[in-house]
Design a protein around this nucleic acid. Structure first.
Length: 804
RNA sequence: GGGCCUGUGGUCUAAUGGUUAGGACGUUGCUCUCACACAGCAAAGAUCCUCGGUUCAAUUCCGAGCAGGCCCACCA
């Protein structure tokens, strides 16, 4: 009972109020402009191409918070290394998510209001969300952005850059408008890029349909999941090696219900095992159809329109949507006894990544950027960039190699960057906006000059750009390509692009593409792929699975620095399982750091920053080890191996510094002679300062607090975050002394073990007997050895311990 | 179907071509020792996924397999 009371008292005394510390220093950093980028400085620039987050008003997933904090730690490290860090915060407020949010929040549909009005509403809402987001997320997480460099993807500057990019590519011949089969979402009624298509698993009916053969009694059976496309059938194919069907080649089939004739041809791509081994090609059911259509120059019969309804090509089925048309056509086939059977099969189809509506392939006029002809070049540029970890480069290369389409950049949406183009109503000529008038919204303005045909009547381009058209220019937007071309030149290519691996095929690819097309340059020297957070069982976190951990809950429960410590154990490119015990360990670590500081500051009260003539052996031992630590973690940081950094510091601090060095030094600090004490104080001062410096990028609040409490008055620099990163001093590395010190610690361990086994208190006084050689060797450590093991006497002989 | 990554005590992980495979969490015992019981000390706990190969020597290198994860493609 007494014990309990005493325990509680003690505990109360030592608790750190993280909340107070965090707010205090966040305000201080802001007030003192600690993280300002200095455009005039001659220091080496480290520029970061930050992923613009979509500022959702909802909660923030731990994975997302980790991702943004992970490279923020790198920014802090580089700043302390003495580099001029260009770290611009940003928001992505361009595109469908914003449209959807505004529609939901205001209870309107974009179709109810004018385009201009809707865009205005989107802008207003984005601004509001971004404000709360930056306060609640970025500042709360202690991020060190230079807020004066903020940009948003819908800002006039960003729009201008997207439009300039477009015009430049038109000029270079890398951008064109064409009527092509395009990936189409019938729900959103817009074209999509290959990257926006996701797999959708579903069960469907495979229908076996009889086709007549011209001039023959025999019928053939064709299996299809899309009977509604019968009206678009433009050819029938079999595999040339398919014995049972080969005889059909060259004959003519008659399409049921519609009665027209199509040729039967052969192609190796046909799988003789699927269905009946006979395929009908329609324009268009899937990418295979497009391939056949192009390869054999088949007819074009468009039977599905932009809204997903059947066209006049489908005759009496015109106007029906895909689902109804399928039902009706199957019904009619059944009536005509042309439907042999139906099989239920599992099928994966491409679907719109936002609404999961299966995509269609529709021929429309769209704008494209050339990609296919540059594949090899783009792979080459990918190799000029350093990837962390390196294997992710393979993902990029695989994607580039397998590209099947040029990039469709036009979207049939409302909110987005407009395509700066008009069409002459009279002669249909395309009129491009003038570069110095950008950004321009063609629906709200007119070309400055008449068309060359003399007409003054124009039809604006209503389409807007794919959001990646802007996002692919983030290095240019972030570093003010158009506004400050001189500074831009100094910073480009950027130093670092941090990003998630799931958007290598989009963001990475498009950014490299643009940089290649506009500048013949790589966009950044390094790309670091962030950590992907899984749940404790190793599964991805998804709202639908109910296993999501919210960052806010963790921050409230454990504080920002504890959260950041957890971020610190992650390594770029490696998955991390979320486990609460990791946060508990982080919390313990910070408490230990706090306590070690309390101890140190007591003994450093009257410290005179003067290096003693001779450092004692144990001090040399610690200083030697710390030089190596600095060497290693500086290298690890440069290679984005942040997990190693944290692990190494943790081990050093806990086991070398606290468990051994401090314990051994206690005697000297409490009752040592002047010389001994000064040596210990010097070492303590410098090693602890080094420790909080190397921890500062990861846990910026507590390290600032400790720095300000004690070191500021000695070191003068106004924040630890702009203090100089420790440099390893080669002269302090001493292998011999390290080995001896390690041996002394080994002996201390043995003595402790012996005492525990014999159920003696660790304070029990002993006589320690050591080999003659060992005593000689360990002479510099004998005094410490005696003090820590409570050895009254150290004698020569075989290793032996006697209790007094 | 193709590509990439991973596989170490109960759990999470580290290092390593050659002594007792390191640490954290958890478990057990002892100790409030003057920074810290959110601590210290100690103990128990591992066929280093399986099978082959290279080697004097493999948990480590190579190959195959199994399992998990991710990306991509195909699916008429």
């Amino acid at each position: 009972m007494k014990k309990e009371v005493k325990r509680k008292k003690k505990r109360k005394k030592k608790i750190i109020d993280f909340n107070v510390i965090e707010k205090k220093w966040q305000n201080y950093w802001e007030k003192e402009k600690i993280y300002r980028f200095d455009p005039k400085s001659k220091k080496k620039i480290f520029s970061i191409d930050v992923p613009p987050p979509y500022a959702s008003s909802g909660h923030l997933h731990v994975g997302h918070a980790l991702h943004y904090t992970q490279f923020e730690i790198i920014a802090r490290f580089r700043r302390m290394l003495g580099e001029n860090v260009y770290f611009a915060p940003c928001f992505d407020d361009n595109g469908l998510p914003t449209e959807k949010y505004v529609e939901e929040k205001l209870g309107i549909s974009k179709k109810d209001v004018t385009r201009a009005k809707f865009r205005k509403l989107c802008l207003e809402e984005s601004k509001k969300i971004e404000k709360t987001y930056s306060d609640r997320v970025f500042k709360k997480l202690g991020h060190s952005y230079d807020w004066s460099l903020l940009y948003t993807t819908i800002s006039p500057e960003a729009q201008k850059i997207a439009q300039v990019s477009f015009l430049d590519l038109i000029k270079k011949g890398d951008c064109y408008r064409a009527e092509e089969p395009t990936i189409w979402c019938p729900y959103h009624q817009t074209a999509l890029a290959q990257a926006e298509v996701e797999d959708l698993k579903r069960t469907t009916q495979l229908n076996y349909i009889y086709f007549d053969l011209e001039g023959e009694k025999e019928k053939i059976k064709i299996a299809t999941t899309r009977p509604e496309l019968l009206a678009s059938c433009v050819g029938v194919f079999v595999n040339p090696s398919d014995i049972k069907n080969k005889k059909l080649v060259g004959k003519t089939a008659i399409v049921p219900l519609f009665g027209y004739k199509v040729r039967i041809m052969e192609d190796e791509k046909v799988d003789p095992e699927f269905g009946t081994g006979i395929v009908m090609v329609c324009t268009f059911g899937d990418t295979g159809d497009i391939e056949f259509w192009k390869k054999y120059k088949l007819d074009l019969k468009i039977s599905i329109d932009k809204e997903g309804k059947l066209t006049e090509v489908a005759g009496k089925y015109k106007g029906l949507d895909i689902k109804r048309a399928k039902e009706k056509i199957l019904e009619d086939l059944r009536k005509e006894k042309r439907l042999e059977k139906q099989e239920t099969i599992e099928q994966t189809v491409g679907a719109c990544w936002r609404c999961s509506t299966p995509i269609e392939f529709i021929v429309t006029k769209q704008w494209f950027i050339k990609t296919l002809q540059y594949k090899e070049k783009l792979i080459g540029f990918g190799r000029k960039i350093q990837w962390f970890p390196q294997f992710y480069r393979m993902r990029y290369e695989d994607w580039v190699r397998n590209l099947g389409w040029d990039w469709t950049i036009s979207r049939q949406r409302y909110y987005g960057v407009p395509i700066p183009v008009w069409y002459c109503k009279k002669c249909k000529k395309i009129i491009f906006a003038e570069k110095n008038n950008l950004p321009v919204d063609p629906t709200a303005s007119k070309p400055k000059k008449k068309c060359s045909c003399g007409s003054n009547q124009f039809k604006p381009e209503y389409d807007v750009f794919d959001t990646w058209m802007t996002s692919s220019m983030t290095p240019q937007i972030a570093m003010r390509w158009l506004k400050k071309p001189k500074e831009f030149k100094k910073m480009f290519p950027a130093s670092l692009r941090p990003q998630a691996h799931d958007i290598i095929r989009t963001w990475t690819f498009y950014t490299i593409l643009k940089s290649f097309l506009h500048f013949s340059s790589i966009p950044w020297k390094n790309i670091a792929i962030g950590t992907y957070v899984l749940d404790s069982k190793g599964k991805g976190m998804h709202k639908s699975k109910g296993n999501v951990i919210w960052a806010e809950d963790i921050l409230n429960k454990y504080s920002t620095d504890v959260f950041r410590y957890w971020v610190g154990i992650a390594t770029f490119g490696e998955d991390l399982r979320y486990q609460e015990k990791d946060l508990i360990a982080g919390k313990k670590f910070l408490t230990k750091l706090w306590n070690a500081f309390n101890f140190s500051s007591i003994h450093l009260k009257n410290y005179k920053s003067k290096k003693p003539k001779k450092l004692q052996a144990i001090d040399q031992w610690l200083l030697s080890k710390i030089q190596k630590l600095i060497q290693e973690i500086t290298k690890d940081f440069k290679n984005y191996k942040t997990g190693n950094v944290t692990r190494k510091i943790e081990y050093f601090f806990w086991h070398i510094f606290c468990d051994n060095y401090l314990e051994i030094s206690k005697n000297r600090l409490y009752q040592g002679k002047k010389q001994e004490k000064e040596s210990a104080q010097y070492t303590l001062y410098n090693s602890f300062l080094t420790l909080i410096k190397i921890l500062a990028p990861t846990v910026p609040h507590i390290t600032e607090e400790l720095y300000q409490q004690y070191y500021r008055k000695h070191e003068k620099v106004k924040s630890i975050h702009i203090a100089e990163w420790p440099k390893p001093v080669a002269g302090l590395i001493n292998e011999k002394i390290e080995k001896l010190g390690d041996k002394a610690i080994e002996i201390i361990g043995k003595v402790r073990q012996y005492k525990t086994k014999n159920q003696k208190s660790l304070k029990a006084e002993i006589i320690l007997t050591l080999d003659k050689d060992k005593i000689k060797e360990l002479k510099p450590f004998i005094q410490d050895l005696a003090a820590v093991t409570k050895a009254k006497e150290i004698k020569t002989g075989k290793f032996d311990i006697k209790f007094l």
